[in-house]
Design a binder for these strands. Structure first.
Length: 182
DNA sequence: CGTGTTTGACCCGCGC
DNA sequence: GCGCGGGTCAAACACG
C-alpha cells in the first residue's frame, strides 16, 4: 500500500485539522481543479436518511494526503517513475465520529470488496462509483481503537454531478454556512 | 429483471 | 522464492 495511512495516525490526539469543517475546506482551498470538483461532491454528504447530526458534523476531520502528484519531476533517481505513476490520483481521508459507517455523500456507490484489516476487528469496505466512466473509489473503515470513528478515504475525481436530490439537506447546509467564519 | 451485496479466489508488491 | 497484507474480480446470491 502507499503512504496515505500515515495521515490517520494519532486520531485520538486530535490533529490540528480537527476543527476544519467541510465548508471551510471549500472556501479556503478553492483553486486546484480537482479539489473543487471533489468538495462539491462532499457537500452533498449525509442526506436525511443517515443519522448524522449537525453536532456530529462538527467532529468531522478532513485531511488531504500530499502524495497527490509526483507527476512532474524529481522522482527519477533510481526508482524509475514508479511513484509518479501510482500517485497520480488524489486521495482524501475523512474522519467522522458516527454510529453509522455509511456516509451518504450523494453519489451512488457499488461495493466491490471487503477485507479484514490487520490489528483491527472491523473490516474495511471498498466502494466504486457506479456512474459510467467514473471510476472514483472510496474505502470505509472503522478504527478499532475508537470504534466511533469512521474513516472514509476517497480516491479519484468525480467526472459528473451528484445524482441524488439533496432534499431538505440543503436547508441544513445553508444553516451551517452561517457558522462559518466568512 | 435490474441493481447492489457477499465472499472466496486471485493478483501483486514488499520484506524476509 | 515464499508468505503476508492489501486491493480487486466475479460468481452467486438477495432484494425491489
Amino acid at each position: 500500500m502507499e503512504s496515505y495511512p500515515t495521515i490517520f495516525q494519532s486520531s485520538s490526539s486530535s490533529p490540528a485539522a480537527s476543527h476544519l469543517s467541510v465548508l471551510n475546506m471549500v472556501n479556503s482551498h478553492a483553486g486546484a481543479e480537482f479539489q473543487d470538483q471533489n468538495l462539491n461532491g462532499y457537500l452533498g454528504m449525509m442526506p436525511p436518511r443517515t443519522e448524522i447530526s449537525i453536532s456530529e458534523m462538527n467532529n468531522i476531520v478532513v485531511q488531504r494526503n500530499n502524495l497527490v502528484d509526483a507527476g512532474t519531476a524529481e522522482v527519477n533517481s533510481s526508482k524509475k517513475f514508479k511513484v509518479e505513476k501510482k500517485s497520480r490520483k488524489p486521495k482524501y481521508a475523512f474522519q467522522t465520529r458516527s454510529q453509522v459507517d455509511i456516509l451518504d455523500d450523494g453519489y451512488r456507490w457499488r461495493k466491490y470488496g471487503q477485507k479484514a484489516v490487520k490489528n483491527n476487528r472491523f473490516p474495511r469496505s471498498y466502494y466504486r462509483c457506479t456512474h459510467q466512466g467514473c471510476n472514483v473509489k472510496k474505502q470505509v473503515q472503522r478504527l478499532s481503537k475508537d470504534e466511533e470513528i469512521v474513516v472514509t478515504t476517497y480516491e479519484g475525481i468525480h467526472s459528473h454531478p451528484i445524482q441524488k436530490s439533496m432534499e431538505n439537506f440543503e436547508n441544513i447546509l445553508s444553516q451551517m454556512q452561517i457558522f462559518t467564519p466568512y
